[in-house]
């Protein structure tokens, strides 16, 4: 009986070990992929059609998408017009749109500095004063997303607008305000 027990236990253990090894291997591969992708991401020379430069793979755009290598934001808008069902707003991380508008990495993260998150003041340097930003969305329903009664700290841009990942609707934490956040 004890032998049987230990046999069963060993088998179980082996299976567990195999599974653990497979999992470890998988995680290592994942990590390496991520590192490769990351080391290539934020390539400041990247052009719109050159997805590989950042993503490490070419199939980012849908199959049969027209070549975009020589395009800028205006060209994209020819198909992806603002307000149309094809709009890019809230569909790709904002960093792409900045890039397409010719705002390159170094304009936000000056060369030689560590690329950290930007302050609201840095965003406003291009986008106008807080008052102007608030006025721009004055008619948005059900509530002006920039007109929070909770004060200036609730208007920090990066609560909602992210550059290198998907933006989010921070208001949803407490309210039912549905917005498409660029």
């Amino acid at each position: 009986m004890p032998q049987l027990c230990s046999l069963v236990r060993r088998r179980k253990f082996d299976a567990l070990r195999r599974r653990t090894m497979a999992l470890t291997l998988f995680l290592v591969v994942l990590l390496v992929c991520a590192m490769v992708a990351d080391s290539q991401s934020r390539d400041e020379q990247a052009r719109p059609g050159d997805c590989v430069a950042c993503h490490g793979r070419a199939d980012v755009l849908p199959k049969n998408h027209v070549p975009t290598a020589s395009m800028d934001a205006a060209d994209c808008r020819a198909c992806h017009a603002k307000g149309s069902p094809l709009t890019l707003v809230a569909k790709i991380p904002l960093g792409h749109l900045h890039q397409l508008h010719g705002i390159t990495c170094n304009q936000c993260h000056p060369q030689g500095t560590l690329a950290g998150p930007l302050t609201t003041e840095q965003c406003l340097a291009c986008h106008g004063s807080l008052e102007e930003v608030i006025a721009r969305t004055a008619t948005t329903r059900p509530h002006n997303p920039h007109g929070s009664p909770h004060g200036k700290t609730y208007l920090a841009c990066d609560l909602c607008h992210h550059q290198h990942t998907w933006s989010e609707n921070f208001c949803l934490l407490c309210h039912d305000f549905e917005y498409r956040v660029p």
Binding site: T153, A156, C174
Partner: peptide, 9 residues
């Protein structure tokens, strides 16, 4: 992510 807790709302 924001200061103020219940006080600010």
């Amino acid at each position: 992510r924001t200061p103020g807790g219940n006080s600010i709302i």
